[in-house]
Simulated assay, not measured.
Amino acid sequence: MAGFDMRTVLALLKKELIGLLRDKVLMGVVVYAFSLAIYAQATGLSHDLRNATLAVVDRDVSQLSTAIVAGLLPPRFQSPVAIAPQDVDSAMDRGQFTFVMDIPEHFQADVLEGRSPRLQLLIDATALMQAGIGSGYIQQVVAQEVAAYGRRAGITSAQPVSVVTRLAFNQGLNSEWFTGTMGLINNVTMLAILLAGAALVREREHGTLEHLLVMPVRPLEIMVSKLIANGLVILLMTLLAIMLVLVKILGMEISGSLVLYAAGVVLYLFFATSLGLFLGTISRSMPQMALLFILTALPMNILSGGFTPIESQPQWLQNAMQLSPSTHFVGFSQAILYRGAGFDVVWPQFAATFAIGLVFFLFSLTRFRRFIAAQQ
């Protein structure tokens, strides 16, 4: 290719890798981000109902009320605590319990006579995630115990339809798999942008950029070498994180092809490292780079569909996020790793990621050339 020497790129690539590996602090951040950080996020940020505090005011003290309380046991709840009615308000005010169930008098007798008694459930909704999940689970336990007691008592159910739920892709509802994968995806975005941008800022701060400018190298060769070097490190750490942290430690089952996923990561890194290098051209120091990173990478991660479904966003924001490769990255990551999707399913997302990445690469190259010209 005219104006592009692959031997020069390989020489610059070697220089970039050596410089990156010698930066012990930066490499320490990379290793931490793809190991302990993913494990801590997967195990520390749980979407499950675990060890929720529960108190019970049992005014009925019947066989049915005892069975309901017995169904609310660890690991979803701590052992239910019996509490007097007059102590409920003060306990809730102190935040002592997330849930307080008040079972009325004559509850069992009303069930037997078909009077549909009401059971009160008080919830401290400041614990929002536990409140939503726990409320549904408690209602499910109550309904199951009431139905089971009714069958034993010879009461025929009037419910004409029974709902059978079947779970797909994550039958155990293991939130660690989801949270760990989202942590990996977010770290790929953050580290790819930071490493590529820091590579250029580091050249400026160390005074080695001037050395490059007096050598017979072209801006395209410099840019490509930096993108490949930093992208290669991120790709290798991503695959290691999948095999060691997600699969080996967390026990996640990878449904799809890792080779196909690696190809998708390469396409996404084409965009993310180009973005990082662009930010590096307009940053005069690492603090400036960090501020620009906050304004770009964090919204990309938050709105990409990894934290909340794209469908829950306003329509204009859904349309706007289709222009962000991070949205497509999350989409094909979940499709391949969770649902075992093949290339015939994810190729539109691959194509969108590559197309947007190519546009941004050309834009970053233009900016990089101007940056190099301004340094000469």
Score class of each variant (00 low, 15 high):
155 I>G: 05
185 I>K: 00
131 A>F: 04
237 M>C: 14
221 E>V: 09
156 T>D: 11
175 S>H: 12
169 F>H: 13
205 E>V: 11
194 L>D: 00
234 I>P: 00
139 Q>T: 04
195 L>D: 01
156 T>R: 12
155 I>D: 02
229 A>P: 07
194 L>I: 13
185 I>P: 01
164 V>H: 09
173 L>I: 12
183 G>I: 07
196 A>E: 06
159 Q>K: 11
195 L>C: 03
219 P>A: 11
159 Q>H: 08
218 R>Q: 15
145 E>T: 07
203 E>D: 15
221 E>Y: 09
240 L>S: 13
173 L>M: 14
150 G>L: 01
237 M>V: 11
223 M>N: 09
131 A>P: 08
181 T>M: 14
139 Q>E: 12
214 V>T: 15
153 A>D: 02
214 V>R: 10
195 L>R: 00
159 Q>V: 15
211 H>R: 12
241 A>E: 07
141 V>C: 03
200 L>M: 10
150 G>T: 00
151 R>H: 11
198 A>C: 04
237 M>S: 14
169 F>T: 04
204 R>L: 13
227 L>G: 08
157 S>F: 01
156 T>W: 02
167 L>Y: 13
205 E>W: 02
148 A>Y: 05
205 E>C: 02
187 N>V: 07
169 F>D: 06
216 P>E: 09
145 E>C: 02
145 E>D: 00
148 A>V: 06
201 V>M: 06
132 G>R: 08
184 L>S: 03
132 G>A: 01
158 A>D: 13
142 V>M: 03
205 E>I: 06
143 A>P: 00
217 V>N: 12
162 S>A: 14
219 P>W: 06
224 V>E: 04
224 V>G: 05
140 Q>E: 12
211 H>V: 12
156 T>Q: 13
185 I>F: 08
193 I>N: 00
212 L>P: 09
167 L>R: 11
177 W>K: 03
177 W>S: 06
140 Q>H: 08
188 V>D: 00
199 A>V: 06
196 A>L: 05
223 M>P: 10
181 T>W: 10
187 N>E: 12
228 I>C: 06
190 M>G: 11
165 T>E: 14
200 L>W: 11
224 V>A: 13
224 V>L: 11
195 L>G: 02
160 P>L: 04
233 V>M: 07
225 S>F: 09
202 R>G: 11
228 I>F: 12
153 A>P: 01
186 N>F: 14
216 P>C: 10
207 G>T: 09
231 G>A: 08
242 I>R: 04
166 R>E: 14
154 G>Q: 02
171 Q>P: 05
180 G>Y: 00
137 Y>H: 14
187 N>H: 11
154 G>D: 04
138 I>W: 01
159 Q>D: 13
161 V>A: 13
157 S>D: 11
165 T>R: 13
236 L>D: 07
186 N>A: 15
149 Y>Q: 02
137 Y>P: 00
204 R>Q: 13
193 I>T: 14
129 M>G: 09
164 V>R: 10
211 H>Q: 13
217 V>G: 12
161 V>K: 02
132 G>D: 06
180 G>A: 02
240 L>R: 04
